[in-house]
Design a protein around this nucleic acid. Structure first.
Lengths: 197, 197
DNA sequence: CTACAAGAATACCACACAGTCTCTTTGCAT
DNA sequence: ATGCAAAGAGACTGTGTGGTATTCTTGTAG
């Protein structure tokens, strides 16, 4: 039964995902049309609907793509033999760097919007956030145990830090002029120092 | 020249704004149609376009409405004779309370989306955020001067706190189950304590 | 009370866009 | 090589929606 080899099929699919990412980064996913994505990918609508059942399925794939990227960063940090505080600090800096990319923020906001509207998307996003939170919590607990951090509710602090990241990203996108990243970094470090012993 | 008295005209307009708010809180502004808003307001499309030039103009009015509400809270805090740290803490708690209202968050996300797409909206939002930031900065500077707070870049810290607020709001909306507000409050207080002397 | 312009109701339009249908091309198993 | 099903191209469609044009109603000045 002649069909595409699985790897080429996946590669085709990824072509659409990448195209969607570029389009969404430019003007947002919601206002991007399926035709836009096809044009960007250099393929046709027929091809698109051979790989995705709907536009939302594409968004879902886009979210997975986005999630995988950050997971990789966190895993790398986790495997390095750095202390928990140092992991936190480095993650914060990576996130700040990412947050300065307007395209990425645009995509994220679209994801949030879709998540509020569609329960399936919300669960997907919540799962990704939960994964990150558990990892951060692990670091924090380790830090508290070793005495590097003062006693704080680890899970809540992890939530707060993740929320802070998205908030900073967002505010930077809304008003870049009011943002001096260097100063924000200092403020952040002050906060991290504040909870360090 | 017989036309409506100015106050009744404004009241009519506000009718649409309120209706829009309710609709947007339910399902988001973007997916809310002008017809939805009219139905909710109990008025007709003809009436709508007598008051607003476009759907976006309605959004703009909605943003003003939203902004005014928080401004009032901040002004009240500002006029009370509390210390700067206490102001910060109370504002944080008010914001946390507001953040637990899903409808409000839904509206905010829509505002952010529109802000990224439309420069006019972005400026409007940036102005509102800038106003809040200046006020917070004032409090922080006061706190630093009086020795209540450790030495931090006031403007950056204000940015961070505002960003944190929106981030928490967002994350709570995305995954309420992972959120124990009480714990978040403790974590927040720990952070505020950390930067207090 | 009356005239009349502003405000409101409703039918209407243009069009953008997600998704489908049909026909053609392609690439793999044999 | 070759046959054949899957994959791709592109025209088409139906619907939902922002905005308008027309008609009807209402409030107010004189």
């Amino acid at each position: 039964m002649p069909r595409l080899r699985d790897e080429t099929k996946l590669a085709r699919r990824q072509l659409f995902v990448d195209a969607a990412r570029r389009c969404a980064a430019r003007r947002g996913f919601q206002v991007t049309t399926v035709d836009d994505v096809c044009a960007e990918a250099g393929l046709s609508k027929g091809a698109f609907y051979a790989h995705f059942g709907s536009k939302q399925e594409l968004l879902s794939a886009l979210i997975d793509d986005d999630t995988a990227e950050l997971r990789e960063v966190i895993d790398t940090l986790d495997r390095g033999r750095l202390g928990p505080t140092e992991c936190l600090r480095r993650l914060a800096h990576v996130m700040l760097r990412d947050g300065a990319d307007p395209g990425r923020v645009q995509v994220r906001i679209d994801i949030w919007t879709a998540a509020l509207a569609e329960p399936a998307i919300r669960e997907q996003v919540a799962a990704a956030v939960g994964e990150r939170r558990r990892l951060l919590r692990g670091w924090i607990e380790e830090g508290v145990a070793s005495g590097e951090l003062s006693t704080v509710p680890a899970n809540a602090l992890a939530s707060v830090l993740l929320a802070l990241n998205d908030g900073l990203m967002l505010h930077h996108a809304l008003d870049a002029s009011g943002f001096r990243w260097a100063n924000v970094r200092i403020a952040l470090d002050a906060i991290l120092d504040g909870i360090s012993e």
